[in-house]
Each structure stands twice: as structure tokens, then as C-alpha cells.
Amino acid sequence: MYSHKKSPLVWFSHITVLVLVVLWTIPTFGLLVTSLRDKDQIVASGWWTSLSTSTQNLIYRTPGEAGQTEEDGLYINTGNALEDGAGKVSRFGTSSLRPQEFEVGQTVDLDDGMQLTVEENGDYRLTSPESFGRRGERIFVTAEIPPRFTFENYRNVLTAEGIGQSFLNSLTVAIPSTIIPVLVAAYAAYALSWMKFPFRNLLLAIIVGLLVVPLQMSLIPLLKMYNAIGQTFDVPAKTYVGIWLAHMGFGLPLAIYLLRNYIAGLPRELMESARVDGANDFMIFNKIILPLSYPALASFAIFQFLWTWNDLLVATVFLGNSEQTIVLTARLRELLGSRGGNWEILTASAFVSIIVPLVVFFALQRYLVRGLLAGSVKGG
């Protein structure tokens, strides 16, 4: 009896794919968890501890004279040093040099006859024989804080000024910058596959060579050329047309290469039968090639859209950072820069920026593998 056994190479391939999936999934999941955590807990501990309590050093300032009451000749300030009263205080202090100087429940003497008591639940009582000042006193507490999850990070990002306009600007850049190269490359790929003309193979070799040209090397010459044309025809420099043309130029080599491999692998009998029926190249392309090329078109459209949506360099060069044209990636960069090193803003911004690419990917992913493998195997 014959038993089919998988070769070691197949098992190695499966394990490698599984490892790669895990290596990509874990950081993404950690980023998502971090974006939903309280900003203080993000700094205090890693995302893998998000379901356990974390030890945090907090600073609380009493309201001073604005929150004082008078009782038996003493001025009193009371309240809770923990946010929302959640957590358990283990130590407290009144100086940044000694934040864990006292035990909870202990009454300590401060300057000018003031006394301070901090309880385990965060409640404090501060008394003074004289009226408190406007700024109040600082209380340093070390507390065990339970897990806290919030949508406040996303609320801060989504309600930031200009986010909506930047979102529309990114769509205005990404959609035409995806459609235009796909259409141009489809025509070029058909010509390189099934039309006879001089230097066809040389042209194909040049296109393949352009795949390895770095964007940074060609960006400045392209910008100079575009500005020269704009000055000649009196066209504004910072326009959407410029960035559409730039993305088209950078995306065409890969698009033509992928689509040419796919179209060249289509059965020759289809084209010959169409020519016998009197169809010309334009009719063959529109009636036969395009309907059969949806997998290859969709696979490149995914890559092109992801690149143009996440692009920052080309958008900054060709559009600038004006309020009318700034894209989402540039807006989120400015938002992060204005907030210093706030990790909660960075993580929430990252997930806001990938929402649209995820929708595009899952909508077209069934064509992705078919399009990438197109032309790798030809039937006899």
C-alpha cells in the first residue's frame, strides 16, 4: 500500500511561513494593545504586562487654597492622589529625591507646621495652621495600578485639527496614483507581449533594470524636470498632478514587469482566434486581455496603493506641507512631533493610518497570490 509522505523541504517551507507569520503578528498585536492602554501604563511597563497590575510613580499636586476648608483653626486639604481612585498606594513622599520615604497611613510633619497623611487607597489629608498657597503641595506616591484600557488615544488623534482634510488628501493622492499606472502599464505590457516592433527586447531589459533604481536617486532630477516644465507652461509647482506623475513614474517598472509576465502567459490561441475574426489589437486588449488580467491588475494595485498611501517623502517634495495639501502621514508626523515622546499618540496614529490599506488588502487579497505567480509556470 502506497503512503504519501511530505518531503522535508515541504515541512521546512511550512515552518518558515509559520515563523514569519508569528514574527509579523506579535509586534502588530503589541502595537494594538499599546494603543489601547493608559498613557502612564505605557511608560511604566511593556504591552505583555497589560493584563497585570503595574507599579507606577505618580505625582499629585494638592489644589492649595482653592480646595481648602477650615476646621477648629486648621486649614485642611483632602482628596485622592490616584487617578479615579483606582490602585493601591505602597509608599509616599514629599520630595522628588525621596518619593518613597514614608509608609502609608503614617502622619508626617512638613514645613510651617503642616502635616500629611496618605492612606492605602490614595486618600490624603493635609493640614496647616495657615492658609495654603495657590499652587499647593506636591505628593509623590508609589502605587500598584490595575490594568486600564481606553480609547482616549484614538480620540486625541482623530479629533486633532486637520486630520479629516489630511485623510481626504491622502485619498486624492493614492487613488489616481494607483489607477493611472495600472492602466498605462497594462497597455505597455500587452505591447511588449504580443506586438512586434523594433527594439522590443531592449526596451523590456531597460524596464527590468529600472526596478533596481533607488527612488532617492531619481527624485531630485525628476523634481527639477517637473519644475522646468511647470515654469515653461506657467503651471503651479505644488499640485496633485505632479505627485500623480511622480508616483506613476516610480511605479511603472514593477507594474509593467508583473503585467507583462501575466499577459505573456495567456494562451496564444485566444489572440489568433480573435485576429481571424477581424479584431485589432485595441479590441483584443479590451475584450480579452483586460478581463483575464484582473488577478495581476489587482495584485499590483495592492502594492501601489499601500506605497502611495504610506508615502511621506514624495508627498513632501511634490505637495509640501500646506494645510490644503498635507497628507495623512505628514499630519501624523506633525502631531507626534508636537506631543514630544508620547507613545500613545504614536501607536494610535499607526493604526489610524493602516485602516484604509487593510480594507484594500482584504478586498483584493484573493487576487494577490494568483497575480504574483502569474507567468511563473506556462502550460504546454
Rank of each mutant, 00 (worst) to 15 (best):
I42A: 00
V141A: 03
T107C: 04
V33P: 06
E65L: 10
G46C: 02
Q115F: 00
D111M: 06
T117M: 04
P147A: 14
S95M: 00
G73I: 08
V22S: 05
R148M: 03
L97E: 13
G113R: 06
G164M: 13
N153C: 06
R98F: 15
A81F: 06
Q56R: 14
V33M: 12
V33G: 01
T159K: 11
R155G: 09
N121G: 05
D112V: 05
S128H: 11
G64Q: 14
F140N: 05
G133H: 08
A86H: 09
W47T: 05
E65I: 11
D72E: 15
E152G: 15
Q68M: 13
S45G: 12
G46A: 07
K88F: 12
D72S: 15
E120W: 01
S95A: 03
D109P: 08
R134W: 06
N80M: 11
T49Q: 07
R148L: 10
G30L: 10
R138W: 02
R135F: 14
T49R: 07
Q106I: 06
G67D: 13
L158G: 11
S35L: 09
Y124V: 04
E119Q: 14
S52F: 14
P147Q: 06
N57Y: 14
V33D: 05
E65Y: 11
G164P: 05
G93H: 09
F29W: 15
S95L: 08
L20W: 09
Y75G: 10
F102P: 07
R155Q: 13
I145Q: 04
K88I: 09
T34N: 08
D123L: 05
A66G: 08
A66N: 14
A160D: 13
T55K: 12
L32G: 07
F167S: 01
P129Y: 08
R61H: 13
S90Q: 13
L110S: 01
E103R: 07
S128V: 04
S131R: 15
V43Q: 15
L97F: 13
N153I: 03
G105D: 01
F132W: 04
D72Q: 14
G93M: 04
K88S: 15
V89W: 08
L158S: 12
G73M: 01
F149H: 11
T34H: 00
G133V: 05
L32T: 01
T78P: 09
N121W: 01
I26V: 15
L110K: 02
V104Q: 04
M114F: 01
N57I: 09
G113W: 02
T117W: 03
K39H: 13
N80H: 12
P146N: 06
P63Q: 06
A44M: 03
D38N: 11
L32A: 12
M114I: 00
R98I: 03
G93V: 03
E103M: 06
G87K: 11
P129V: 12
N153K: 04
G105W: 01
